[in-house]
């Protein structure tokens, strides 16, 4: 495991913000750390970076305790926390040069990073004049500068337009696949990470509600049969009378929990026999977005 926490808890005064969190982030994964705003994501990330002191529990990164091997661990992490920390009075390039000086990274790497996040043209512009998206990209370049093994990114696509979001996603996938990095990325939007994450942790009110691979998350969601019919209300009544459970009815669709292929055929013939026009019928996976809402709202 690249990151492993045991019973990690943290209080701000009386308020418990993180409750016995046990994260397991495998090497080479893109771990989506999900939860609504205020769930405790940023606090957890600050604990992982030793910006906040561990109050109870423990954190191991690269199999080393963060409390005792802080500098060694931090030298292998690139991070971006909330809005990027950028000196507005310096140019984008100078921001990178300053960091390169601190991390003793060759100057050539600065140009490579600018090219990677497509800021070469804007490198000599004051960072204060950058758009939010450009600042975010510069923040990612800063995080990648020292070629870290682990990237910890807190909502890195905040303020990016759809193109920017896709670019960041592709960049992260490339980093993991080609360079064997591990990415820990937090977000309040499942849709944003579900296309790249290999693993997911869902947190709400400081508690970890789910942790596992993206497939395990999908398996949690019960598949259903989606039926497009002419009169959905009558069709729903008919199915209910015939002992089928109808979970949802809209103007055009009705939904029945999926159990087997034969059941789909039975539903279809039942509706046909009773004069209902069926335009489409098929098995459907409940989308993860809804699943995410279910999981976080139940708590």
């Amino acid at each position: 495991m690249v990151i492993s926490t045991q019973d990690l808890s943290f209080n701000f005064g009386d308020q418990q913000v993180v409750k016995s969190l046990s994260l397991q982030v495998p090497e080479g994964s893109i771990y989506g750390f999900l939860g609504p705003n205020g769930a405790g994501k940023t606090t957890t990330i600050k604990l992982l970076l030793n910006l906040l002191k561990v109050q109870s529990g423990s954190i191991h990164i690269f199999e080393q305790d963060i409390q005792h091997h802080r500098i060694n661990i931090l030298s292998q992490i690139g991070s971006l926390i909330e809005q990027p920390a950028i000196y507005q009075h310096l140019t984008g390039k100078e921001n990178l040069l300053n960091r390169a000086l601190l991390l003793r990274v060759p100057v050539k790497r600065v140009d490579d990073m600018l090219a990677l996040v497509q800021l070469t043209g804007a490198g000599d512009k004051k960072a204060g004049q950058y758009s939010l998206g450009m600042k975010q990209r510069l923040g990612i370049a800063l995080a990648l500068l020292a070629d870290p093994k682990l990237l910890i990114l807190d909502e890195p696509t905040n303020g990016l337009d759809p193109n920017g979001i896709i670019e960041v996603r592709e960049l992260l996938i490339k980093l993991v696949r080609q360079y064997n990095k591990t990415v820990f990325i937090s977000s309040h939007l499942l849709a944003e990470v579900e296309r790249m994450a290999t693993h997911v942790g869902i947190i709400n009110n400081g508690e970890l509600l789910f942790q596992g691979s993206i497939n395990e998350l999908q398996a949690l969601s019960q598949p259903q049969v989606c039926i497009e019919a002419d009169n959905t209300v009558d069709a729903a009544n008919l199915l209910t009378r015939n002992h089928f459970m109808v979970t949802d009815v809209t103007d055009n669709y009705l939904y029945v929990p999926y159990s087997s292929k034969q059941k789909i055929a039975e539903i279809n013939s039942l509706l046909n026999r009773n004069g209902h026009a069926v335009y489409s019928i098929g098995k459907q996976q409940k989308d993860l977005e809804r699943l995410f809402l279910d999981i976080t709202q139940k708590a």
């Binding site: 600050k46 970076l49 910006l51 500098i71 931090l74 926390i81 920390a85 950028i86 000196y87 991390l103």
Partner: peptide, 18 residues
């Protein structure tokens, strides 16, 4: 104030420097 303005305390203290 250079750090307060840029909100860079957090990145400064997450560098591999004591």
């Amino acid at each position: 104030s250079i750090e307060h303005k840029a909100d860079t305390w957090k990145s400064l203290f997450s560098l591999p420097i004591s």
